[in-house]
Simulated assay, not measured.
Amino acid sequence: MLSFLQEKGIKSYITSSSDMEKINFNLSHNDLRQYFAGIVTGEDVKNNKPAPDIYLHALDIAKVNKNEAVIFEDAPNGVESGLNAGIDVVLVPDQVMPSEEITKKVTVVKTLADAIPLFE
């Protein structure tokens, strides 16, 4: 998915509740840094997920509006945050599946690769 988005010229940003040290560790150990135009953490905003702040801040940094963005999430708090920000959310479930009420409001895929057709 990251290669596909990069090839299409679609910028990707990390928006994570984790701190920058943990994010940088994961990026460097998985050789993924080159795929992201920027990183926004919970440290960058007043209210962390499920508040919409982190996604609204990412929109400002990316200089795009809500209609030009898509959020990929794996956690219930992140899904709620994206919905609270008014941005389309694609859910790739990880350990905890959000409630049926929430999943009715988002696109659910099994893997990130399954989301590629959304961009073609």
Rank of each mutant, 00 (worst) to 15 (best):
N26H: 08
S3L: 13
D31N: 00
E21G: 00
D94I: 03
V64P: 02
L32V: 00
D88R: 00
Q95M: 08
D60N: 11
N67L: 12
K63A: 14
M97K: 00
E100R: 12
K105F: 04
T15C: 15
E101T: 10
F25C: 02
I102C: 03
P50C: 11
P93S: 02
V45R: 07
M1S: 13
V96W: 04
P52D: 13
K105R: 08
E101N: 10
D114K: 00
N67A: 14
K104T: 13
K104F: 08
P98G: 04
T107Y: 05
V92L: 08
L27Y: 04
M1I: 04
V45T: 12
T103C: 10
V79F: 04
S3W: 11
I87P: 03
K46L: 14
V92T: 09
F4H: 13
Q34H: 15
D74L: 04
M1F: 14
D31S: 02
I14K: 02
H57Y: 15
L2D: 08
Y35D: 13
F119K: 05
N77F: 13
T15K: 01
L112A: 05
A58I: 09
L83F: 04
N65P: 02
E100Y: 14
P50Q: 11
T111M: 10
V92I: 14
D88K: 03
D88H: 03
G86V: 06
A51Q: 12
A62E: 15
Q34P: 05
I71D: 08
N47F: 14
N24E: 15
R33M: 09
L59I: 09
L91Y: 02
I14H: 06
T41M: 14
N67V: 10
M97S: 01
T15Q: 06
E7D: 15
M97F: 07
M1V: 07
N84G: 08
S81T: 01
L2Q: 09
P52W: 11
E80F: 01
V70I: 14
P98C: 06
S12V: 13
L32M: 06
V70H: 04
E43V: 05
A62C: 10
Y35P: 02
V109I: 07
D60S: 12
A115K: 00
G82A: 03
M20D: 10
M97G: 00
H29V: 06
T107P: 00
Q34Y: 15
G78P: 00
D31K: 00
I14Y: 10
I10K: 09
I23Q: 02
E120I: 11
L59F: 10
K46M: 13
T111A: 09
K105V: 02
G78T: 00
K110C: 04
A69R: 03
A69N: 06
E43C: 07
E21Q: 03
N30Y: 09
F72H: 05
D94R: 00
G9P: 06
M1R: 05
E68P: 01
V40R: 12
V90S: 02
L83A: 03
N30G: 00
V108K: 01
